[in-house]
Every structure is written in C-alpha cells, then in structure tokens.
Simulated scan of single mutants.
Amino acid sequence: MSGRYRKEKNCLNCGHTVEDHFCSHCGQENIIVEEDALHMIAHATADYFHFESKFFHTIKPLLVKPGWLTQQFVAGKRVAFIHPIRLYIFLSIVFFLVILSGGHKAKEHIKTAPEIKLETQKKDSVVIEKTFSLDLENLRASDKFATVEAYNNYQKTLPKSKRDGFIKNYTIKRNIELRDYPGGVSKKMTEDFVHNLPKMMFLLLPLFALLLKLVYIRKKKYYYEHLIFSFHLHSALFLSALITILFSWLIGFIYNIGYVLQALCSVYIIWYIYRSLRTFYDSKRWITAIKILFLFTGYAILVGITSLIGIALSVILM
C-alpha cells in the first residue's frame, strides 16, 4: 500500500505519534481513510491474502511437525503464525458446525476425535440416565400429572417427609414441561449435551494443561506453555477429523471406505500425540510411552468430569 499512507503523524485511533506506517501504541495502520474504491479493494485483498498466507503457513507444520509449532511460539517466533487460541477457536467452530449440522453421516465420524464419544441417541439416553442415577419409574411419575401445578398440588397433600427431594422434584417438573417434545426428555437432554460440547472443551483444555503440568513437572515449564501445547494439540485433532470427514464424504460417492479412513485417522492421532510430546518435552521414547498412558487415563477422567458438568447444564438450562 505504498503511497496511500497519511502524511500526518497522529494516529486517528488513539492520537499517539506514528513513527512509521503503524502506530506503536495501538497498532493501527496510518492509511488514508477517504480512499477510492480501487485502493480499498486492493487493501482488503492484500489483508485477505496476508491472512491466508499466515493460515497455511500455520496449518502445514501443525499437521506434519507435531510439537514444533508450540516450540516456535514459546521461543517467541510468533509473527508468522496464527495465535494458538485464535487457531483453536477457528478450527473448533468449523469442526462443531460440521458435526452439529452434517447429519448422521457426519456424526459417525465424531469418534475420530478422542475427546468426543457419542453413540446413538438411544445409547446417549441410557448414559445420561445412568449418570444421574435416575430411576425410570421416577422419571415416568410425571405421566400421572397433566400439569406442573397438578404435581405441586399433589406434593402439598403429602407430609414433608414423604415429598419428593429436590432432584426428583425438579426432574419430574421438567419432564412434564417437555413431555410433548419430539423424542422426549432424553432426546432433549442429548441434544443440549451435544450443543454444550464446545463450551465443555474450553473447560477441558485448561484442565488438560494442568494435567500436563503435573505429568511433566520436572521439565520446569510454565503453565502457559502447557496451555499453548494443549491448544495446538486439539487444533490438530480437530483438523485431522475434519479432513477425514471431508475425504469420507468425497470418496463415499464412489467407494464406502469410511471405516478405513477412520482407522487411519486414529493411527495418525496416536502417532501425533506421541510425536508432539517427544518434540515439545524433549523426552525419551519409553518415558513418553509411559506418560502417554498416564495422560490417556487422566484425560478420560477429565472428559468424564466435563461431561458431567455438560449434562448438568443441559438438565438445568433445558
């Protein structure tokens, strides 16, 4: 954009003096505001290709050099790459949009991401009911009442010692309110749980970083370094799952090899986790293999905890 910069040295955004082309205080470019359409389009196009170049410059090492991108970021080499949090947000949005709107075929590929394990709606309903230890007879007790008011009036006729507890009381009321929902309460809970997955992931990532901190406590790394590694790792997993879904969809018009691609993706994910841990934490093969077992166990526990939180939110907010 040479020749389109303002001659004045005051920043239009914050008022500070601009020494060169960008304000050292707020970062805004000191360009002419009243530019013609041609220059405006050219400037927007340059910004777009700059982002595109930065994006692909980040994606390539993310996929083929596990752990290297985190090393570069921690070392201070950040200008050429997309920020890990911004990268994760972008890929997670695309991933969950595909999963939530791609129909049953896309949802079959959810199992390629290790942190998301969903089966059919029927199995989900059983998991949710078991998780809360809900007795089906108690859940069906709502069928005896036409309205919540009728249930409340019935409860008032009972002695306090015989009345339903808080959880059962709330469950029955919600069941009455959602009785006419297509598929029933269990389906509603499952749908809300799936839609809460993106929020749960933002809770899971910091917890996973804390787990990494504990497992690699002798490496003397700061917590934020583990957090950056967590964002890069999950970004790579989301991207590999998206690529698998895309190829399964494209090749599916000719051959049905979805399960083969899923198997290859699973092998790639296991290799990626192993290689990224070795690269970033500079650990030996056998030590990395042992720590992966601890990480998988701890990760499963964290997924269980965040899942319970997600299910609880789906019950409270539905």
Rank of each mutant, 00 (worst) to 15 (best):
H57L: 11
I89N: 08
R78A: 11
G102H: 02
T112Y: 15
Y48V: 03
R86G: 11
G67M: 03
I110N: 01
L100Q: 09
I59Q: 04
E52Y: 00
G103N: 02
E52H: 00
L87V: 04
Y88E: 00
E108Q: 09
G102A: 05
F95S: 13
K60R: 07
L91Q: 03
G103W: 06
V79E: 15
F95H: 13
S53K: 06
Q71Y: 11
Y88C: 01
F56H: 02
P61G: 03
I82N: 04
I85P: 07
T70M: 02
L63F: 12
V64P: 04
H50Q: 08
F73A: 07
V98G: 05
P114R: 05
A46W: 00
K60M: 03
R78E: 14
T58E: 04
V74S: 02
H104C: 03
G76N: 04
F56C: 01
K65Q: 13
L69Q: 02
K105M: 13
I110R: 00
V74T: 04
L87E: 11
K105G: 07
V79S: 14
I99Q: 12
A46K: 04
F56N: 01
R86C: 11
A106K: 01
T45Y: 10
V74R: 01
L63T: 09
Q72D: 06
R78W: 10
A44S: 14
K65D: 12
Y48E: 03
D47E: 02
F56R: 00
Y48W: 04
L63S: 04
R78T: 14
I89T: 14
T112V: 10
Q71P: 06
T70A: 02
F90L: 10
V74H: 01
K117L: 10
T58F: 06
D47L: 05
P84A: 09
A80G: 06
P66K: 14
V98E: 01
S92Y: 03
E52V: 08
K54M: 04
T70C: 02
L118W: 15
V64W: 15
P114V: 08
H83M: 10
H57I: 13
